[in-house]
Design a protein around this nucleic acid. Sequence first.
DNA 1: AACTCCTGCAACCGCCTCCCG
DNA 2: ACGGGAGGCGGTTGCAGGAGT
Length: 335
Amino acid sequence: MGRSPCCDENGLKKGPWTPEEDHKLVQYIQKHGHGSWRALPKLAGLNRCGKSCRLRWTNYLRPDIKRGKFSQEEEQTILNLHSFLGNKWSAIATHLPGRTDNEIKNFWNTHLKKKLIQMGFDPMTHRPRTDIFSSLSHLIALANLKDVMDHHPWEEHAVRLQAEAAQVARLQYIQYLLHSSTPVPTGSSNLTGLTDIEAFNLLNSMKEQQNMLNLSSQLESPNSGSLGLATTQSFDSSISFSQMPDLQLQVPCSFQTSLSSDFGQGTNSVLFSQGEATPTSPWLPTSSLNTPPLVTQTSFNSSGDACSTSSYGGGAPSAAFWPELLLDDSFLHEN
DNA sequence: AACTCCTGCAACCGCCTCCCG
DNA sequence: ACGGGAGGCGGTTGCAGGAGT
């Protein structure tokens, strides 16, 4: 290893743990609890630093750790949470029982990040990358997929990509529609306090309940030629823009928070309440789509006062978040 | 079979935050 | 208010083993 070990000066052992060391650590913690990590190695008869013991226990020896491959659901959850939280691995881990932050971080770095890049998404923002190099890499990735080449001529791909580009445009419009809606009702008496994470989880559960589109499955099958937004399966292309103002957003879960957007023309929002939320305000001209919305999520305490606000967005639609929220037509129906 | 390259993951490092005196 | 210690976190490294040649 290239690094100078931190425990060398104390003559403490580093590197892989032996079964004997594992056994000592487990025996000690099961008997006494970990207590002070710094004091533990000595008490447990281990020639390791406390930090090393803590890491070994939390990442490997803890009895409630789930091992094995990540499921589709877990993968989806990580993608969603990452689009929302960024590299907050410990925060993400709290939503995946039995998974450690280290494991999730490794899974992200070795699998999900690569998949997103291959799909033409920026892994940090979860948005489609617009630079020519990312488009190239995406096309190259597609070209490398043998079955794509075997079964679909390039002309067909070009048509498909064109169609998907149109779907993306519709997505942006839908997203925009959602953002330009009723104002946030501050001071309402029955609003439930909700943290950003709780609100996010509820949004996520909406997805599960409504059998929303599965980005993971798209990522598993990049040879579909999709741009990654997976719009075709759930978006009826026959819906015209003129019909969109009549679309209603239904939220089949019990929580109240708001999503608002700032187009530089004041703030608009959709309030998600128990039952449903209906965007009602007039649509801004299509040209305002050129100004990507900054989305602000506000939570309210039991008194109805806004107690937390978080912002995200300000660019093209997020691959992991917005399509799930917006693109399933089971969420959208005409009045 | 031998070698090289690649990938996954356990483990380490350094920084940050929190807590307590 | 401040400083030091402990724990926690995210980035990174390097080894082991699998895949490819």
